[in-house]
């Protein structure tokens, strides 16, 4: 990708996305853009509709109204929900990656760590065992998973290690866009810190574009360039991360910020 040319074209453009569950509101009239190399954090308390929104953006849920446009490698804008299923699935295993809150949702628990990391490579046509293994080892190292565990199954790993493995599995093919759903949720504080450090390193090293859903403002501050604050399915405030967290305009954001200790 030639970054300079594409800086004006958003990688992902979210336009008036609305999703309801019967009488319950998921998210309503959400619009924002994500530019190449940018990390956007979606924050809000649980039940605010962040995860519903993320699933809509990643094509895992179909919104009731609005659209999500993705700019592919050729520069054409694809409507995530109206492209053919083959195309969408192709995106999901090549251009995109999805990191789940619970590692077991994103890993094959009965397949070895090496197999987990190698799957996307093999799906892309890699047929040389030695090379696949080499790349898997390389990524285990990058994500600080003990390489001697390459042939062990993830269900023998600790929570933090599983999460790092999930990240390795997702990033091995160099995706253009990464969706993360509470990537540090459910981990001990010390484990969280290490994972955050790792993620921050990878994000800057690889120039990743990412959308991260989190209820943890510390996570949002560390990883994201811009923030989208949600409440009851709607956006209440957006802006640069530091600006939103240090000088919140909306009353709800103020409450949210004041309720956590600053790092």
């Amino acid at each position: 990708m030639t970054e300079t040319e594409n800086l004006q074209t958003p990688l992902l453009s979210v336009q008036s996305v609305t999703k309801t569950y019967g009488p319950h509101l998921g998210c309503s009239d959400i619009s924002f853009d994500l530019y190449p190399g940018e990390v956007v954090g979606i924050v809000g308390e649980s039940g605010s509709g962040k995860t519903t929104l993320l699933n809509c953006l990643a094509g895992r849920l179909t919104p009731d109204a609005g659209k999500v446009l993705y700019t592919d490698r050729l520069g054409s804008a694809l409507n995530v929900h109206t492209v053919s299923e083959p195309q969408r699935r192709m995106l999901m295993r090549t251009d995109w990656a999805f990191v789940h809150q619970h590692a077991r949702d994103g890993l094959r628990m009965t397949v070895s760590a090496g197999g987990n990391v190698g799957e996307r490579l093999m799906a892309g046509g890699a047929r040389h065992y030695g090379n696949i293994r080499e790349q898997a080892l390389d990524w285990l190292e990058k994500t600080e998973v003990d390489v001697s565990r390459i042939d062990d199954r993830p269900d023998t790993f600790s929570g933090g290690m599983q999460q790092r493995l999930q990240i390795a599995r997702n990033l091995v093919t160099g995706p253009r866009l990464v969706f993360m759903d509470e990537p540090t949720g459910g981990l001990d504080v010390s484990v969280q810190a290490r994972l955050l450090d790792l993620l921050r390193g990878l994000v800057s090293e690889m120039g990743l574009s990412a959308i991260i859903v989190t209820h943890d403002l510390a996570v949002a501050r560390l990883l994201s360039h811009r923030l989208v604050v949600m409440r009851r399915g709607q956006i209440v405030e957006t802006g640069l991360t530091d600006q939103v967290l240090d000088d919140p305009q909306d009353a709800y954001t103020q409450l949210l910020v004041s309720s956590v200790l600053h790092p």
Partner: peptide
């Protein structure tokens, strides 16, 4: 059926990979 239709056969090789690894 979808996997066949879209030639999504990566998983099959994962199985063979696992055999060799083990």
């Amino acid at each position: 059926r979808k996997m066949h239709a879209l030639e999504e056969y990566g998983l099959m090789h994962v199985k063979l990979y696992e055999d060799i690894a083990r």
